[in-house]
Design a protein around this nucleic acid. Structure first.
Length: 554
DNA sequence: GCCGTTTTCGGCCCGACTGTTTTCAGTCG
């Protein structure tokens, strides 16, 4: 709709364009499905959606069409919106290409877009971090570089990264920009100016560089960390105080020519605006600015507070339904000691249902129980590392009807169990919710693991009634996992935030199938921080003693 | 079209870069 207004009369509809763009962003970032909000009559609770847009959306949900939307859209071909996915092409350029351009060229572009979509546009966190690290190493080799930092969504630890953003402090911007555009792996210079430059790396990764002198580096870090919405909200707040913010510092509106303040670090920047320092992970304009004003920001959980990993797959062969781990229990315990943990859980998949009858499954699980008892006996008698205890657990498939493929006698052998969805991902929401709640009901089941079952860039999460799931967990002492595998990062951060608000507790599980996978705990911590978690929201911060007490609660 | 610890009317973030421009429009973050 914003594009349509832009085509009609950019100046006349200036504020409708802004309003629709904001509404679209609000919809994209909303924690609930829009349709669900409409069902509950809560559409206008979404900031950015007012009476007019809510009415049009209501008509759309009710009848499948909206007269207002239809009339605005009738002159714009769908290809125009496709073309806008290419960098540098907006609605005007797209329309011009379709109307006056070479049809062959347009078809070529459309094909390019379709292929890009297939590949998935966004990069997983570890990959983006690695690429950024290489570029930063290169930049730091230049003598003109004083500081270099990764910023943007990478610094905010978003689950996927679009472009890689890097900031450099220098007193010789020309030299640094020039050097940057000569990066050996660069395929193309997208732009090159006085303060910024962008290059394209193999695999379609874009790297943006921004440069400032050392004395205003704090303003640059703040500006380039974003998010865009956080910065917009921050500038609106500043405006009310008669101030104007930019990457150069703070000016007064009365006299824009006079720069009143430089900032060498971010904390002083926020404090100057009357706000507490806001951690990068929170900068998404979802209430952090209001909280910073009222000194109510949460004390975010930190890596150093984590005392355990509650989903690990060892190579101890229990003839599992899905992939077995690659490292032995001994190797995993050694790794857990390196990480300074007090306890861990071995959570291999359940023995396959296909190859075993109930008594065979129980026999296999007895073997694992005995092995774990032996390990715990020896841990008690020789204190070598931080690890004091290992728990006998299992990651159990949730079958389509919510039942578990492990007989009661087998479940009794466990200290506790995780359950998760590995099949039949397309059940309708109410059925899926019932399926999960049925599985969670068993007293041995304590953790709902990788709860949406999403795989980033591959598969959307399942449909669940989250308020109902959260409510059940709260009342029945069940926990929701934050799966730390960078492919999953599941529960997603926006739902983590909902869980925190309700007081639902969460667990970290790396889902490691090799001892090195246990390092992924950092990504889980990032998700938790983005979801406003403090240590109290995460079970893994509990001492062994407290964790054992929690296991006894039902 | 949306929104409110100065406002239910009168505002609406800020600057960079490109290309075609000789003062600006389009696009982006």
């Amino acid at each position: 709709m914003a594009a349509s207004y832009q085509l009609r009369d950019k100046d006349k509809y200036k504020f409708q364009i802004i309003a629709y763009e904001r509404a679209a962003d609000a919809v994209e970032h909303a924690s609930s499905e829009l349709k669900d909000l409409w069902d509950d009559g809560k559409l206008e609770d979404v900031p950015g959606i007012g009476p007019s847009i809510a009415e049009h959306l209501g008509e759309l949900f009710k009848t499948g069409r909206s007269k207002h939307f239809d009339s605005l859209m009738k002159d714009i071909p769908t290809d125009a919106f496709k073309l806008m996915e290419l960098p540098g092409i907006g609605i005007k350029t797209a329309m011009k290409m379709i109307k006056e351009g070479n049809p062959k060229e347009v078809r070529g572009k459309l094909k390019e877009i379709a292929e890009k979509e297939k590949k998935g546009k966004r990069h997983l966190l570890p990959y983006a971090a690695m690429v950024a690290h290489e570029v930063m190493e290169y930049l730091s080799e230049n003598p003109a570089t004083v500081h270099v930092d990764p910023l943007g969504s990478l610094r905010r630890q978003a689950s996927t990264i679009g472009d890689i953003d890097i900031a450099v402090a220098t007193n010789d911007p020309v030299a640094v920009i020039d050097y940057f555009t000569k990066y050996p792996k660069s395929q193309k210079i997208i732009e090159k100016g006085e303060h910024t430059a962008s290059i394209l790396l193999p695999g379609g990764i874009q790297v943006d560089l921004m440069i400032q002198p050392i004395e205003s580096y704090g303003s640059l870090l703040q500006h380039f960390t974003g998010s865009k919405h956080h910065n917009i909200a921050l500038r609106e707040l500043a405006l009310k105080k008669g101030l104007s913010l930019s990457e150069y510092g703070i000016k007064t509106i009365k006299n824009l020519k006079i720069k009143i303040k430089n900032f060498e670090d971010e904390k002083s920047f926020y404090n100057y605006l009357g706000l507490d320092y806001i951690e990068p992970e929170l900068r998404e304009d979802t209430g952090e600015i209001e909280s910073a004003k009222e000194h109510k920001l949460p004390n975010l959980v930190e890596l150093g507070e984590v005392k355990s990993d509650l989903q690990i797959h060892s190579s101890f062969d229990i003839e599992t339904s899905h992939d077995l781990g690659e490292s032995s229990m001994e190797e995993i315990i050694k790794k857990a000691n390196e990480l300074g943990y007090e306890y861990i859980a071995f959570t291999e998949h359940n023995p396959s249902q296909k190859g075993h009858n109930d008594s065979q499954t129980v026999e296999i699980l007895k073997r694992k129980r005995e092995n774990i008892d032996e390990i715990n006996y020896s841990l008690k008698n020789r204190h070598v590392g931080s690890i004091q205890k290992v728990f006998n657990s299992l990651e159990i498939d949730i079958l389509s009807d919510g039942s578990l493929p492990v007989p009661e006698q087998g479940l009794e052998l466990l200290d506790f169990a995780l359950v998760s969805i590995h099949s039949n991902f397309n059940l309708e929401k109410d059925l899926m919710t019932k399926r999960v709640l049925t599985a969670l009901t068993h007293p041995k089941v304590r953790i709902f693991a990788h709860p949406t079952a999403r795989k980033l860039n591959e598969r959307e999460g399942v449909e669940l009634n989250w308020p109902e799931i959260f409510d059940f967990c709260l009342k029945n002492n069940k926990w929701i996992e934050i799966n730390c595998d960078p492919m999953r990062l599941d529960l997603p951060d926006n739902l983590v935030r909902e869980a925190v608000k309700l007081g639902v507790k969460m667990t970290f599980g790396t889902d490691a199938h090799h001892k090195d996978g246990m390092n992924n705990i950092t990504f889980g911590v990032s998700v938790a921080r983005r979801g406003w978690c403090g240590a109290r929201d995460i079970i893994n911060t509990r001492s062994l003693k407290d964790f054992e007490l929690l296991l006894k609660q039902f």
